[in-house]
Simulated scan of single mutants.
Amino acid sequence: MPSFDIVSELDQHELSNALDQANREIDSRFDFKGADARVERQESDLCLHAQSAFQLEQMLDILYKKVTKRGIDLRALSPETPVVQNLRASQAVKVKQGIDSDVAKILVKHIKESKLKVQATIQGDQVRVTGKKRDDLQEAIALLKAHDFGLPLQFTNFRD
C-alpha cells in the first residue's frame, strides 16, 4: 500500500553554514566594530549577543538573510523577546524541528475533512499518510501544500 511521511526537519549543516556567514558579516560591518556581537548555537537553539536591542534587530535581519539564501524556511525560526542587562543584550531564537502533537492533530484532521481516500496516523514527530492509489497521495500532498500550518513541511519516504 503506497504511503509517505510528513516531517518538519532542518538541514543542520546548512544552518551552521548560515550561522558562520552571519558571524563573518557581523564581524566585518562597521556598526558592529568592538561590540562583541555574535550568533551562537546552543544545542538546538540559537542565541544572539550584542550591546543593544537595536543591534540585535540588525543581527536578526542578517541571520534571516543568510538562512534564506541557504534554503531554510524562516518559519523554522521563532525569535523570543530580547533581554537587556547592564549594557549587554541577548535574544534567544528557537529552532523548530519535528511536528508537535497539536500540529499533527490539525494535519490529520485537515486530511480527514478533505474526504480523500487516505488514512493519516501520527508517529512520534511525523505523520504517515497511506492510501490505495498514488494519485490520492499526490492529492493529499497538494492539499497540505496549499494550507499554511505555521511550520515548514517536507514529504519524505514516498513508497509504492
Rank of each mutant, 00 (worst) to 15 (best):
residue 68 T to N: 02
residue 68 T to M: 09
residue 68 T to A: 09
residue 68 T to C: 07
residue 68 T to Y: 04
residue 69 K to S: 14
residue 70 R to N: 11
residue 71 G to T: 10
residue 71 G to P: 14
residue 71 G to R: 08
residue 71 G to S: 09
residue 71 G to I: 13
residue 72 I to Q: 09
residue 72 I to N: 12
residue 73 D to N: 15
residue 73 D to Y: 09
residue 73 D to A: 14
residue 74 L to W: 12
residue 75 R to A: 15
residue 76 A to R: 13
residue 76 A to S: 14
residue 76 A to P: 11
residue 77 L to K: 03
residue 77 L to F: 15
residue 77 L to D: 06
residue 77 L to M: 10
residue 78 S to L: 13
residue 79 P to L: 03
residue 79 P to N: 04
residue 80 E to Y: 05
residue 81 T to L: 12
residue 81 T to C: 12
residue 82 P to S: 00
residue 83 V to E: 08
residue 83 V to Q: 13
residue 83 V to L: 11
residue 83 V to D: 10
residue 85 Q to V: 15
residue 86 N to E: 06
residue 87 L to Q: 15
residue 87 L to S: 15
residue 87 L to M: 08
residue 87 L to P: 04
residue 88 R to V: 09
residue 88 R to Q: 11
residue 89 A to P: 04
residue 90 S to F: 08
residue 91 Q to V: 01
residue 91 Q to A: 00
residue 91 Q to K: 03
residue 92 A to K: 03
residue 93 V to P: 00
residue 93 V to C: 01
residue 94 K to W: 01
residue 94 K to E: 00
residue 96 K to Y: 06
residue 96 K to A: 13
residue 96 K to T: 13
residue 96 K to D: 13
residue 97 Q to I: 07
residue 98 G to E: 06
residue 98 G to W: 06
residue 98 G to F: 05
residue 98 G to A: 05
residue 99 I to M: 03
residue 100 D to E: 14
residue 100 D to V: 03
residue 101 S to W: 08
residue 101 S to N: 12
residue 101 S to A: 08
residue 101 S to L: 11
residue 101 S to I: 10
residue 102 D to F: 09
residue 102 D to S: 10
residue 103 V to Q: 08
residue 104 A to M: 02
residue 105 K to I: 02
residue 106 I to S: 10
residue 106 I to G: 08
residue 107 L to H: 11
residue 107 L to Y: 11
residue 108 V to T: 03
residue 108 V to I: 14
residue 108 V to C: 01
residue 109 K to D: 08
residue 111 I to V: 14
residue 111 I to K: 01
residue 113 E to P: 14
residue 113 E to D: 15
residue 114 S to H: 12
residue 114 S to L: 10
residue 114 S to R: 14
residue 115 K to F: 09
residue 115 K to R: 13
residue 115 K to Y: 08
residue 115 K to Q: 12
residue 116 L to P: 05
residue 117 K to W: 08
residue 117 K to S: 15
residue 118 V to K: 00
residue 118 V to Y: 00
residue 119 Q to K: 15
residue 119 Q to L: 09
residue 121 T to H: 07
residue 122 I to C: 11
residue 122 I to A: 09
residue 123 Q to W: 03
residue 124 G to L: 04
residue 125 D to N: 14
residue 125 D to R: 06
residue 126 Q to A: 11
residue 127 V to L: 05
residue 128 R to K: 11
residue 128 R to L: 05
residue 129 V to L: 02
residue 129 V to P: 13
residue 129 V to E: 01
residue 129 V to T: 07
residue 129 V to Q: 03
residue 130 T to M: 12
residue 131 G to T: 02
residue 131 G to I: 01
residue 131 G to H: 00
residue 131 G to M: 03
residue 132 K to S: 04
residue 132 K to E: 13
residue 132 K to P: 00
residue 134 R to V: 12
residue 134 R to M: 11
residue 135 D to L: 06
residue 135 D to T: 08
residue 135 D to I: 05
residue 136 D to R: 01
residue 137 L to V: 04
residue 137 L to H: 02
residue 138 Q to F: 02
residue 139 E to D: 12
residue 139 E to Y: 00
residue 139 E to T: 07
residue 140 A to L: 00
residue 140 A to R: 00
residue 142 A to D: 09
residue 144 L to Y: 03
residue 144 L to P: 06
residue 145 K to S: 08
residue 147 H to V: 09
residue 147 H to E: 15
residue 147 H to S: 11
residue 148 D to E: 14
residue 148 D to A: 12
residue 149 F to Y: 14
residue 149 F to L: 12
residue 150 G to K: 06
residue 150 G to V: 10
residue 150 G to R: 07
residue 152 P to I: 14
